[in-house]
Amino acid sequence: MKRHLISTGDLTRDDALLILDTAEELARVSQRSIKKLPTLRGRTVVNLFFEDSTRTRISFEAAAKRLSADVINFSAKGSSVSKGESLKDTALTLEAMGADAVVIRHSASGAPHRLATWVRGSVVNAGDGTHEHPTQALLDAFSIRRRLGRLEGLKVAVVGDVLHSRVARSNVLLLHTLGAEVTLVAPPTLLPVAVETWPCQISYDLDAVLPKSDVVMMLRVQLERMNAAYFPSAREYSRRYGLDRDRFARLHDDAIVMHPGPMNRGMEISAEVADSPRSTIVEQVANGVTVRMAVLYLLLGGSEPAIGGAE
């Protein structure tokens, strides 16, 4: 059966735990001198990036190479063909190259889903528009579990630009599956329509949510996607929804702070908080490679994928 990782909503609890447990074992490989495993020898992974993303592309590339897969980086930036056509043409090219997996980043929500109908290999969504970014959510869950030892019953606040965030949606769906309680905190203008159907709580008041949170996940304010006035000014946003020293002090002692990066220091998060020992921001990057290795192994390592949603 052909399976993909397009949405964290497609993952069952068992799937998600299998990915996290596999990543836990693979984390040990990153600590030894020979970091390579022969598992995906002869398999081809194509990184298809229609949007700039240095960290995600490098992370996927490192993950595939550590598993000995052949990696082809296909940067579609600057293509003059209109989006729909270009994606299908590209898909046909990938078919001809015999890609076993396609990792796709696209500015249009739903692009990975379309791609999955055109290619034979597994499709891994590396971020599509404002829709989803499942491997980011998986590495966040992995980072939380490593720090706090569990996910079940944890209170997680996801704060900021939920409207433009694919990370928020993927995280809400995954953390819900894994038994955590998520609260979205944002100004009403930065919440998407139908957010009330998501499996989470909603609040407009960060100061009320902070003291009872175990994890505070700050989202980047995506100024490049904003073509309207979503809040009066950067300073006002920062004052009401930014995590600064005073707010940080109100967290309980074991609570951790996360950010998917890249950060706007001084806007949604102050430099002091970002660099504190209770921030997992640097770990999140290292854990990204490990979690992506786990995903690629479970999708490509056997006769058929062990995780993911069917097309």
Binding site: D21, T22, L299, S303
Partner: peptide, 13 residues
């Protein structure tokens, strides 16, 4: 024989 069965969970090293 990895390719003969779906990817299996890893053991601990």
């Amino acid at each position: 024989d990895l390719r003969l069965r779906p990817a299996r969970p890893l053991g601990r090293t």
